[in-house]
Design a protein around this nucleic acid. Sequence first.
RNA 1: CGGGGCGUAGCGCAGUCCGGUUAGCGCGCUUGCUUUGGGAGCAAGAGGCCCUGGGUUCGAAUCCCAGCGCCCCGACCA
Length: 479
Amino acid sequence: MADEKLPTRAENFAEWYNQLVLKADLADYAPVRGCMVVKPYGWALWENITSWLDKEFKATGHVNAAFPTLIPMSFFEKEKEHVEGFAPELAVVTHGGGEELEEKLVVRPTSETIIGHMYAKWIKSWRDLPLLIVQWGSVLRWEIRTKLFLRTAEFYWHEGHTAHADSDEAKEEMYRILDIYERFCYELAAIPAIKGTKSETERFAGAQITTSIEAMMWDKRALQSGTSHYFGDNFARAFEIQFLDRNNKLAYAQTTSWAISSRIIGALIMVHSDDQGLVLPPRLAPIQAVIVPIYKNDDEKSKVMAVADRIFVELKAAGIRIKMDDRENISSGFKFNDWEMRGVPVRIEIGPKDVEKNSVALARRDKPGKEGKSFVQQVGLTESVKQLLVDIQASLLKRATEYRDANIHDPKDYEELKQVVQDGWALSYWCESKECEAKVKEDTKATTRNIPFEQPDHGGTCIVCGKPSKRKVYFAKAY
RNA sequence: CGGGGCGUAGCGCAGUCCGGUUAGCGCGCUUGCUUUGGGAGCAAGAGGCCCUGGGUUCGAAUCCCAGCGCCCCGACCA
């Protein structure tokens, strides 16, 4: 039992993360370099994420469809910036059925091109708009340095692709989706992500506007957790998505695309989890509460299990995602640690003493050890557990918000900015020039994350060059 | 693409320098018994193309040559 414990976060954050993903049973390394296998427990978590998003997309008029994995190479050459952005990380199929292909096929790294091609075919009239399609699937990017969930060659996501008659409507769509992403982060993931606009250099290849939500991890690095893009007519021109408008004039469609990927699971881990293992927000946890029965002999077992079974049925009927850990020959101490590693929000311990006293021990995962343990009556347990799940959800968000705010700095000058981005974020005025942005990156490795929508009501001067500046930007080291 | 390291059981390693019985150890796995309120104990088992190919030798995990694969450190992305 040498390596049951994780390295601490302070000791080695990267190694803590790697081992946590494996030990919490979320994913495993695949035989292909850079690829991962998402294990059933990890996939259950992903399904809780996707099912909420899917409902929100459908509620806002979107429909799901599927486009092919393979895309003709020539499609990528139609939008100049897009091909430049993606060329280095394309996987290309050169042979099929033993023959060399006449036109090489790209394994999709994203689907703007093939969807653009199809949209050109489908959109002929203003009556065909808006077209609001979401694809759930995976994409492949030939990454050099990979890490489970955060950056793998193949990853899972949804990609929304919409086409609109005018630019205002398309921009509204972009912002509408970003709002859904924000609500997902706050309400489900308990992550206080910040909405904003990407700088020109950080923009998606081919986009006119890229917006993002940015989240602060435990190590204070930033993680782009979702993006929503407005393309103007860039892709419409490249793929000839044209329609006759109300005035019988030929016009280009305005398109958007947007995504949240399985990377969000990495954010969940790096925002909430601790040295004991995974910590999951109750609304996303595949298992919200686990029952660990404790007994020494058959006599105790029958008494304990009678209570445990009854409680299991009650909680399940109340809609709580509950699990009975009835594994034999494993000590209860091991089970406690095991479920803590897997991030289950609430643990219910039932032993002979509880049977006598009509109580149970309730342990909340967000407060490890004795601090989070309480003894409550079996009567009314369903309500106690429900309330506890709500409390945990709220306290995770509160803790993450306080942590984020405590580590966002307002440096006085460039010297101080260089200091604070080594271990935190800076929110500073910036003149929005590429030169100043590049200088910060060169000096500190920190990049602009986004220009938050929420801004002070007055301007200031650029933290780098001192020129007048209208808006503040977040500078941080990023994943 | 440039520098360093490693391929031996599912995982982590020892053995390799200096060739020589039946290739070991820890974890994990299987079975049985005892255990179970914070990471249990004992016992018996299963599990090997020692990366691949060639060479040297009476004899190669070990020496030589070639190849393959992987990992770590310096330029991009959800």
